[in-house]
């Protein structure tokens, strides 16, 4: 397929965006019921009104802080457990059922369970934690498990310390996959965290506001809060992507990728 120029890409992207708005507007005109489907103008008005209040920014901050805490905790736990699983086959096998369980439970089910266990306040963070943990665990452990056996043997023979083995052999293998997966998981954690806020209800967070707007049938506001979540989701993913590219470009760790077999006599 022919690569479009940047200008044309922007043009067609804009046309696609316009198409959604036009479709939305058209349907809302046809439905002609602001409670079922408010038109874009009403939503924009609601959004601008909300964006002018301090509560709006506090809600954004509360949501981000809570979900970020869970995200970071999930990373720390995933790195530690994944690291141990990468070093020990036994521990890997031991951890697998737990991780499979967490990963396969529907998000909505464990949000409700977490609500019962830890109460409203901690639920979004805990949900983000549970989303991120298995992803990080999986990539870190499998990244480490794919570390080069031959190089590890050489490290064994030359008595490299455990720290050096980790730094020169395991980390370079696991690091790029970990960073990629962890940044992708940030988007998931955000969406699941907001979902947890909605189900928890009654909090001054983004999800909490979505819930209250629904209760009082403030549908344009509900759309406006949802739009905020989408906007922040895009911002998070853009930032994560930029960070990822930067890290992968600059931070190529010294790795012990094995030498290829020397093969024939080298011409020197």
């Amino acid at each position: 397929m022919k690569q479009l120029s940047l200008k044309k890409q922007i043009l067609w992207y804009g046309l696609g965006l316009l198409f959604i708005i036009a479709l939305w507007w058209g349907i809302s005109l046809a439905v002609s019921n602001q409670v079922v489907l408010p038109d874009p103008a009403a939503v924009a008005k609601a959004f601008l009104r909300l964006a002018g209040t301090a509560d709006f920014y506090l809600a954004v901050l509360r949501s981000m802080a809570g979900i970020l805490c869970g995200y970071l905790a999930g990373n720390v736990a995933g790195l530690v457990l994944g690291g141990l699983s990468g070093l020990s086959e036994r521990f890997y096998a031991f951890m697998r059922p737990t991780m499979t369980l967490i990963k396969s439970t529907p998000v909505a089910s464990f949000i409700i369970l977490v609500l019962i266990w830890v109460g409203k306040t901690g639920t979004p963070a805990f949900t983000a934690f549970l989303i991120v943990l298995p992803v990080v665990w999986q990539t870190v452990s499998s990244g480490m498990r794919s570390a080069d056996r031959k190089l590890l043997e050489a490290a064994e023979v030359f008595r490299l310390s455990a720290g050096k083995k980790l730094k020169y052999i395991y980390v370079p293998e696991a690091y790029p996959v970990y960073v990629g997966a962890s940044l992708t998981a940030m988007g998931f954690a955000w969406k699941a965290g907001v979902a947890a806020e909605v189900l928890a209800g009654g909090m001054k967070t983004l999800g909490g506001n979505i819930y209250s707007s629904k209760i009082v049938l403030e549908i344009p506001e509900l759309f406006a809060w949802t739009f905020t979540v989408i906007l922040l989701s895009l911002v998070i993913e853009l930032c994560a992507g930029a960070v990822l590219r930067k890290i992968l470009k600059r931070g190529k760790l010294p790795s012990g990728r094995p030498s290829a077999n020397p093969g024939e006599v080298a011409a020197e």
């Binding site: 031959k150 043997e153 050489a154 490290a155 030359f158 020169y168 012990g256 094995p258 030498s259």
Partner: peptide, 23 residues
């Protein structure tokens, strides 16, 4: 014990000297 493996098994991103220094 020290080994000269059949395949070199070097750390590719390390310099020649760094590889030897690892031992």
């Amino acid at each position: 014990v020290s080994v000269i493996f059949q395949e070199p098994r070097l750390f590719e991103d390390f310099s020649v000297l760094e590889n030897v220094m690892l031992a």
